[in-house]
Design a protein around this nucleic acid. Sequence first.
DNA 1: ACATCTAGTGCAATCGATTGCGCAAGTCAA
DNA 2: TTGACTTGCGCAATCGATTGCACTAGATGT
Lengths: 339, 339
Amino acid sequence: MTTIKDVAREVGVHPSTVSRALDPARRGRIGEPVVRRILEAAERLGYRPDTVAASLRSGRSNMVGIIVPDIANPVFSPIIGGLEDVLSARGYALIVADPQPQRTGTDDIVQRLVARRVDGLVLANVALKDNSIERCLSWKVPVVLVNRAEAEARVPSVVSDDVAGMRLAVAHLLELGHRHILHLAGPQMLSTGSLRRRGFVEAMHEAGFAPADNDIEEAEAFTREAGRAAALRLLARQPEATAIVAANDLLALGIYEALRETGRRCPEDLSVIGHNDMPLVDLVDPPLSTIRISHREMGEQTGQLLLDLIEGVRGDARYVVTAPLLIVRRSTQPPRISR
Amino acid sequence: MTTIKDVAREVGVHPSTVSRALDPARRGRIGEPVVRRILEAAERLGYRPDTVAASLRSGRSNMVGIIVPDIANPVFSPIIGGLEDVLSARGYALIVADPQPQRTGTDDIVQRLVARRVDGLVLANVALKDNSIERCLSWKVPVVLVNRAEAEARVPSVVSDDVAGMRLAVAHLLELGHRHILHLAGPQMLSTGSLRRRGFVEAMHEAGFAPADNDIEEAEAFTREAGRAAALRLLARQPEATAIVAANDLLALGIYEALRETGRRCPEDLSVIGHNDMPLVDLVDPPLSTIRISHREMGEQTGQLLLDLIEGVRGDARYVVTAPLLIVRRSTQPPRISR
DNA sequence: ACATCTAGTGCAATCGATTGCGCAAGTCAA
DNA sequence: TTGACTTGCGCAATCGATTGCACTAGATGT
């Protein structure tokens, strides 16, 4: 490994001069011909700066960490992808971490990442009240929330407009002629779960159909299995409803299973609409109507926000909400003519 | 930030003593009571070791990098998940990188990761002949290939038994009574593409049905769109075939689209079988018969292999191949009675 | 001609932990 | 009592780059 000293010796200057010449930002202070010779020598010797050493001295690691609840979740991978894109373009590396349920002792992931001197952190898994945020705050490490927000808005976040998304969904069903609409809600400790529920309730209210508590059922988690179980409960309670809006696509697919098991057909007997438009839901049977969220774009925005925070640019758009889009496929249709 | 010196001063010993006392491996050389006092002081002061400084001196970074072609690809996320699991359990962090098509100049990702002093590298994107492997080799950084292997086996790899998988697929169709079976192959520069093609050809041969070149069509990429296009070509050429085996699920879904466009039904007119068993293919219409590969497990194995390599344990299982499993759903059925 | 800048480099400290080597005190055998 | 070890810990160098400060020339101002 050739170091900065080797280059310095080769050119006959001091290491510090090499350091400056190599950094475009500070190159200005160095004479033009010297810079040229240094660049040439560095190239010739195959010099690669040691990021670790630089980090130690400068205090910046050029790394950011992201904490996701489940990497395999199709919602998070595009977020990671978008994030990685903008970060690597600016020379940052992304380290992804999965909060293992119970690892040895008190060293949780946030701490581990901070010990690695990450310059910033992205949290994709916060609950409405979440203490990892406080820890980041107390350590003064820049943080951006993505996908899910917290109850108090203490740190920047990038989320979809969940309430607006539910408005779109409800409006679509209303327009089709549905009147008795149910909601399969997600976990209420998550912003996505609670905001979407609120969106549903508000939209129904405004249309003059105040939903009863009985019209809403909460799933234990954002999974197919939890969706199936909750749908079974909900359908048993409200057999004459004509449509159901799910808090996310996985839940909607769970509803599909429940419908099959109880001998109902979608959309003939019951219209179903999801949320997220994750990959492949256009190919399920029937193709799922849903609300599209551009997760990749959210990842990119998150990267921007975080970089601004790290580099001290006071971009004032601290709370980015992206606009959802209604995607109509074949799981929704007008209700059958009721007597 | 409290450093090792602070702890040393607090306890009244030398920093090096603290360093040793804190490392379980070298703790033995230090007196028991001193260790206890150091541990206590470290805890009380909230000491967190600075990973960066440790890396600089020790040469180990406790980080490994993984290079994936596309994070959003549902095949890679479980691999990353499994990998991250075993790595973080051993104190390693995982940094994921996406090879941007053309970034500035010659500093490709491999170089960038090596500059970050990663202790090892996982390549999930190698082509059959790939020069990033040579670079890793020349830099002497431990490497493990996953999902796709290279032509010459110079470095350890973890892959599914693609040939065996295709045998399962072909055997299944044969057993159903199919005789004229087509293959929608993947890119032949990738091991998955070429091995699966070979598996198909071999299995057919052994059954006594030598496939003609005309029975095989190569898709440009492992995508739905490429699958659709290739399927269109293939079906135009071989209209009387009764079954088609795709080199992967995405390709199979492309076939679905092509079938719909040409007014054929699956499985009545044509049986289709995929490969990978990626999430949600059990919900498409019709539910896809396929070959299951346990990607998460592959990720875990990859992690083990890499750790062994890094830590010098000569685990001799250098080339892990996992066994594929046939999953029969509803996209395959016996062919219609031909005249 | 003299004081004042300014541009271009060199010097040396520093970041925080690791580690080879050395030294002192204690143990044990002869 | 002495010599050979062992145990426990301190010393100081080191990893590779960054950075505040000092210094030297030549340029500028008056």
